[in-house]
Write a protein that binds this DNA or RNA. Structure first.
Lengths: 110, 110
DNA sequence: GGCCATACCTTGACTATCTAGGCATCGTGG
DNA sequence: CCACGATGCCTAGATAGTCAAGGTATGGCC
């Protein structure tokens, strides 16, 4: 794996995971891989961040878990987006775009 | 003041403050106002976040403090960017752009 | 047999931010 | 004259999210 990604993840992790699940149910390990692949390795989620985040979101009923089998036949816990989670994703995405948009504009001011 | 901006500030505050100071020395209160004004009130930094951040950055020698008088003649502590701080700003800006760029691309995936 | 990839989980430390206060000065309106 | 809002600084405590570093177990491959 490349270099250190720092703590910029803070505040965007939930949205990223929800977004990943919006393309269909996935298990934890697969979520991390999907994010890494679709961000050119820029987004690397540590397991110590991912699993607690998944519990958090399950508690808030944004996602639902179910045990199943991975593509390789292993025991794996699949998460799928709930309706509530879909609304949350929309809200967080909008919030992220407007806030980080503002940050980006300030940082790039001449 | 408008509505709640949430906790999305995490990880971008340092860069924002450094950026503000890159246009010339300012005191704490003025930094917060400047950021609010130049972001359409999108970025609102609480004082409880700002002052500790300023000490942190002073300790790291990214900025230097000096007591002076505000435009209104009040006692105020002015901060100015050091050479080290300028390098830090460049590094953090680049990091922010690449990381949040990746986040934005993922969140906006069709 | 040993090792790597897959897949899950937990503990502890750290750090940054927010909430919510407090202090002091000044100008203005009633 | 006095109250109040704006200016300007500071701090304590709570919270929360992330990371580092461990641990378990299975399967495939050399």
């Amino acid at each position: 794996m490349p270099k250190t990604t720092k703590a910029l993840l803070h505040g965007s992790l939930d949205a990223l995971v929800l977004k990943t699940l919006s393309f269909g149910p996935r298990h934890g390990y697969a979520i991390a891989k999907w994010l890494a692949e679709h961000s050119g390795e820029e987004i690397r989620v540590e397991e110590g961040s991912l699993y607690p985040a998944l519990y958090r979101m399950e508690r808030r009923e944004w996602i639902q878990a179910e045990w199943g089998k991975s593509e390789l036949g292993r025991r794996a816990k699949f998460y799928r987006l709930t309706a509530k989670g879909r609304r949350q994703l929309a809200a967080e995405t909008e919030e992220w775009l407007s806030f980080q948009g503002a940050v980006g504009r300030v940082l790039q001011m001449g």
